[in-house]
């Protein structure tokens, strides 16, 4: 349904926040987390690759499919917080 090829986007942790607002999750009208806004000055804004409206399929290889909002956002927050990596990998789907 208008879904484009998933794209891997690597966001370096170049600011103190990731700087995205996310909506959606299992059992809501938006079953996969969707980027609602991008905050100026956050890592996502600075790296310039994420866009409002994109849907996040995976974070560091972890699928968000079937996860409720709270769990999906926790996965994203922990991926940004962990000191194991200085980046977060997002598998993104675009809709046209």
């Amino acid at each position: 349904v208008g879904i484009m090829e998933p794209t891997l986007v690597r966001v370096p942790k170049c600011a103190s926040t990731l700087g995205i607002a996310v909506e959606g999750g299992a059992n809501t009208r938006q079953p996969l987390p969707r980027i609602a806004t991008i905050q100026k000055g956050g890592s996502a804004h600075i790296s310039g690759q994420l866009r409002v409206g994109q849907v996040i399929l995976e974070v560091n290889g972890v699928s968000l499919k079937g996860m409720e909002h709270r769990d999906a956002t926790r996965v994203i927050a922990e991926a940004f917080k962990t000191k194991d990596k200085d980046y977060v990998d997002f598998l993104i789907a675009e809709f046209n």
Binding site: V22, E23, N27, T28
Partner: peptide, 15 residues
């Protein structure tokens, strides 16, 4: 389709 319409909106979380 009807079932889809009854699903609640999601909250938004700033990360």
């Amino acid at each position: 389709r009807e079932k889809r319409l009854t699903l609640p909106p999601s909250e938004i979380t700033l990360l």
